[in-house]
């Protein structure tokens, strides 16, 4: 097992360099110039432009720039933001808890609802519940996220006034963020109502962000369950006189989890990569919004570093999923 993890970690290196190269190239291919953007409407003289160019190192050949960036990255230095002058590393980890908190809630929402829904649909294959659920899932999957978010905001925040429109917590509460996770910090602050406020701010973004994973998980669980329910060992379980609940919930689901875990892993990857639309609509101060803003500002180090860190997260999630396979089904356990 340890050998397997180590060999997988080794394969991270080429992927890592590849991602570094792509993110480095990607932002430079975009039209626009960070120096012009920084100068704003006042503009700047040719001399000043050349001075700044030299300062940022843009006057040197592109491969020299990449090499310097790569050596920096290898030493754990992702550079500083052009705009805020703060290290990219610090900025990322200030904002990342917000994204992580939202993604985790969305994922829990999707799994807690999607898994049982898929199982029930598979067991009642072809019946009303199955059809209703699968059509709903298809709608959820194909619905534009921004439209769905706005619809929920109009109904629950506008008409019913049950939930706040945006942000992470009501402005009346203030406390130092110790962990960056609003749910934990608000609880730790001991202020009355702070935790409830944080929860109510989370509800709509969670639903919006969790909708697509929910639909995918429900459909994947259903199809995996249908496949497993036709297996010989399910017949054996029935021949043992086990109850349907035990057969479906233990004997079948455990086997059906492999493909489901795969889609959960892929969804986690996309959620961590920043739920750009959701974060933008709900003014959620996470990395999705931060990345979009940085692209507009042509903030090269932020875009490069952000992409790189997200890629690493996705790689780690994938590795975790691969190891979970073996935990769930010992037949595919790695030696």
């Amino acid at each position: 097992m340890l050998n397997y993890v180590l060999s997988r970690l080794l394969t991270f290196i080429p992927t890592f360099i590849g991602v570094t190269l792509i993110s480095f190239a990607f932002i430079r291919v975009l039209p626009g110039d960070p120096i012009i953007v920084m100068a704003g409407e006042r503009g700047l003289t040719k001399e000043r432009y050349a001075e700044l160019e030299a300062q940022f190192g843009f006057d040197r050949p592109i491969y020299t720039q990449f090499w310097e960036y790569l050596t920096g990255v290898m030493q754990g230095d992702l550079g500083n933001s052009f705009v805020t002058k703060r290290p990219v590393w610090d900025e990322f980890f200030t904002l990342f808890p917000a994204t992580l908190e939202l993604s985790a809630c969305a994922m829990i929402f999707a799994v807690v609802l999607g898994l049982p829904a898929g199982v029930i649909a598979a067991v009642n294959r072809g019946k009303f519940f199955d059809r209703a659920l699968m059509s709903t899932a298809l709608i959820g999957y194909s619905m534009p996220i921004f439209w769905w978010a706005l619809l929920l905001i109009i109904v629950f925040s506008g008409n019913l006034q049950w939930t706040p429109v945006s942000g992470r917590i009501s402005l009346v509460y203030y406390f130092q963020d110790a962990t960056g996770f609003m749910l934990i910090d608000s609880l730790a602050s001991g202020q009355k109502g702070a935790f409830a406020s944080a929860v109510s701010h989370l509800v709509l973004p969670t639903i919006v962000l969790g909708t697509i994973p929910l639909a995918v998980i429900a459909r994947q669980t259903r199809s995996a369950m249908l496949e497993v329910l036709g297996e010989d060992y399910i017949r054996t379980a029935r021949a043992k006189g086990l109850s349907p609940g035990r057969i479906n919930g233990i004997h079948a689901l455990r086997n059906a989890l492999i493909p489901v875990i795969t889609v959960i892993g892929l969804s986690v990857g996309t959620l961590l990569a920043g739920a750009i639309l959701t974060e933008t609509i709900f003014s959620w101060p996470g990395i999705g919004k931060w990345m979009v803003d940085s692209i507009f500002r042509r903030d090269y180090p932020v875009v490069q570093g952000g992409l790189l860190l997200i890629a690493v997260m996705v790689m780690v999630v994938n590795l975790t999923v691969d190891m979970l396979y073996g935990v769930i089904n010992p037949k595919i356990r790695k030696r």
């Binding site: 060992y233 017949r235 054996t236 006189g241 004997h251 010992p330 037949k331």
Partner: peptide
């Protein structure tokens, strides 16, 4: 009621032993 008999007084084994046992347990 049948489940109390099946697997208890009335048992069955199948053709493919490899696929008739649950691989996860």
């Amino acid at each position: 009621e049948r489940r109390k008999i099946v697997g208890n007084d009335l048992a069955m084994i199948f053709q493919e032993p490899m696929s008739s046992l649950n691989p996860c347990f």
